[in-house]
C-alpha cells in the first residue's frame, strides 16, 4: 500500500490540498527572508502554521481514510494542537521583542 494505490476520489482533492499547503508554507517561510524588520517577519510563519498545516493534515486524513477503508480522523488532534499552541509562542515572542526593543 502506498500513494499510488489511493483511489481517484481521494487522490484528486488530496493532491490539490497538498499543492496548496506546500505553496502556502513556502510563501510563509519566504517571508522570513524577504521582510526587513522583525515585527513584519513575525506575521509570515503564521501562514504555514494555520492554513498550510490545515491543508496538509486534511489531505493526510483523506488518504489514510481511503487506504484503511474506514474513517481515520486522528490527524484532527495535530490540527487542534497546532491551532492552539502556535499563537501562544507567537504572543510570547512578540512580547519579548517589544521588551527587548525598548531597552
Amino acid at each position: 500500500m502506498s500513494a499510488a494505490d489511493v483511489p481517484l476520489w481521494a487522490a484528486l482533492p488530496a493532491a490539490l490540498l497538498l499543492i496548496c499547503g506546500g505553496l502556502l508554507t513556502l510563501v510563509g517561510s519566504l517571508g522570513l527572508l524577504r521582510l526587513d524588520s522583525f515585527f513584519a517577519r513575525i506575521h509570515a510563519p503564521t501562514m504555514g502554521g494555520t492554513l498550510g498545516a490545515g491543508c496538509v493534515l486534511l489531505a493526510s486524513m483523506l488518504v489514510s481514510t481511503a487506504l484503511a477503508q474506514r474513517p481515520v480522523i486522528h490527524e484532527l488532534l495535530i490540527t487542534l494542537f497546532i491551532l492552539i499552541t502556535a499563537p501562544v509562542t507567537t504572543m510570547l515572542l512578540m512580547r519579548a521583542a517589544i521588551l527587548r526593543s525598548k531597552e
Binding site: T25, V63, E75, L93, A97
Partner: peptide
C-alpha cells in the same frame, strides 16, 4: 540579527519539519 529572529526561525523550522514527516507518511502510506 536578534535572538527573537532565531527563535522564530526555529519555530518555523519545526512546523515545516512536522509537515514533512506527515508528507512522508502520505507518500509511503
Amino acid at each position: 540579527p536578534a535572538a527573537q529572529d532565531r527563535i522564530l526561525a526555529l519555530d518555523t523550522l519545526y512546523i515545516n519539519g512536522m509537515l514533512t514527516i506527515l508528507m512522508l507518511g502520505i507518500g509511503f502510506g
